[in-house]
Write a protein that binds this DNA or RNA. Structure first.
Lengths: 227, 227
DNA sequence: GGATGTGAATGCATTCACAGCA
DNA sequence: TGCTGTGAATGCATTCACATCC
């Protein structure tokens, strides 16, 4: 079981519960890319795609693609490839996005508001059902069609909508405390934009996106290229 | 290596790059987290930090921390730990953020505008010097103090400010073409928010942040936890 | 012919364990 | 005693190569 996945790096594994393992963590990350790419192929009318084609589109070897998909079943047809529509459905099922997740957003600042106004999440299987903030000026308003609540409504809304995923887009100082409140109220997964490390655990998955970190990685890579 | 990885290629250079080779890619990702954590320790007044403390704050083993840092030099003091202020300075130098990078942003939609209004990048070593969009209504305006230009100004601005990093926050359809334009104009690193895979290469680093992918990963992990 | 699925081999990354130093 | 730096050992992930099937 994955305990810790800060910035998509180096997960810490639990000593217990090895049952789902045998699947490399990087393979699971690539699964999402395969889904995205299959959807793109579907839109362009392709009926079937080979591991080589899929890999080339993503910068991955064909062997890697085959092995990744084979962890989850025998989806391909020798001599033909993978049927696009079937794979979209299969991958959604594996990733758990064949059903709609209710998500809340905490921190309706610039970034949070931008996420609320993004209309593409629903067709990916995620619906933002409520937003939370501390600024009095925002309470009671709606952003992108989503109501903004005070934090004292957090637990009520989470339980009312059976919310298990949260997006945290607050300043760093507020994040740890909010993380605790969220988990206490039943949230099981957090997408964390705050530039701070949150303590994942056996009942909480954390995925971190730190924009400064992303730019630093580019800085390093570009410097290396130029050296 | 023939095919290119989304998270940037492992560049192979000789001579001065010796120092950069043989370093695990995950270690470089963690370097940014170490920097962030050291800055946090500094703010809380700690003068010195051990690999165990640092690791605990990030969910990483102490051995991992020591090995990662040792790839770049001998920074620690046996019996004491790592001096916080020195490490902040060292890590910035390693990551290349001790100098200010000029960055452009392409796609001033909801997400792009949010990034333009975020004030924290400069102290991390990145300054957004211009934004670009196709919407006539946005041209000539400023968002977060940054001027929005038409795309036909792209090359001029890039060369004028010696821009090597770009943030791409456009719809998927526009991304590939823009990527080509950016590289042609001299951009060496792209932070890509468009949900599409861009072709990295020996002279272009790409770091991708796909929000739907991030949520899918949480979906998978939460489902596994519940199983 | 063309493509999958998969054991075996390879190559990396992480962890161990300890010498050495403050 | 406490902590780093680092070879050695372990454990994972990726790639190879080929039997198998359409």
């Amino acid at each position: 079981m994955i305990l810790h996945n800060q910035a998509g790096t180096s997960p810490v594994r639990s000593e217990t519960a090895m049952r789902f393992n045998g699947i490399p963590t990087p393979a699971i990350r690539r699964l999402s890319l395969y889904l995205r790419q299959f959807e793109s192929f579907r839109q362009s009318g392709q009926q079937t795609v080979s591991s080589r084609q899929l890999g080339q589109a993503l910068g991955i070897t064909d062997a890697q693609v085959r092995k990744d998909l084979a962890y989850f079943g025998q989806f391909g047809q020798p001599g033909v490839g993978y049927r696009v529509v079937e794979m979209v459905s299969q991958l959604r099922s594996i990733l758990g996005t064949d059903k709609l997740w209710n998500v809340i957003l905490v921190g309706a600042g610039n970034l949070g508001a931008a996420l609320l106004q993004y209309k593409g999440f629903v067709e990916k299987g995620f619906r933002i059902v409520a937003a939370f903030d501390t600024a009095k000026g925002k309470l009671g308003r709606t952003i992108g069609g989503v109501d903004v609540f005070d934090l004292d409504q957090l637990e009520r809304v989470i339980r009312a909508h059976n919310v298990r995923l949260a997006i945290l887009a607050t300043p760093a100082e507020a994040a740890e405390s909010l993380c605790a409140q969220l988990t206490a109220a039943g949230v099981r997964g957090i997408l964390n934009f705050a530039p701070v490390s949150l303590p994942a655990g056996p009942s909480l998955a954390v995925n971190a996106v730190d924009l400064a970190v992303q730019l630093e990685q580019l800085s390093y890579q570009v410097n290396v290229m130029d050296s």
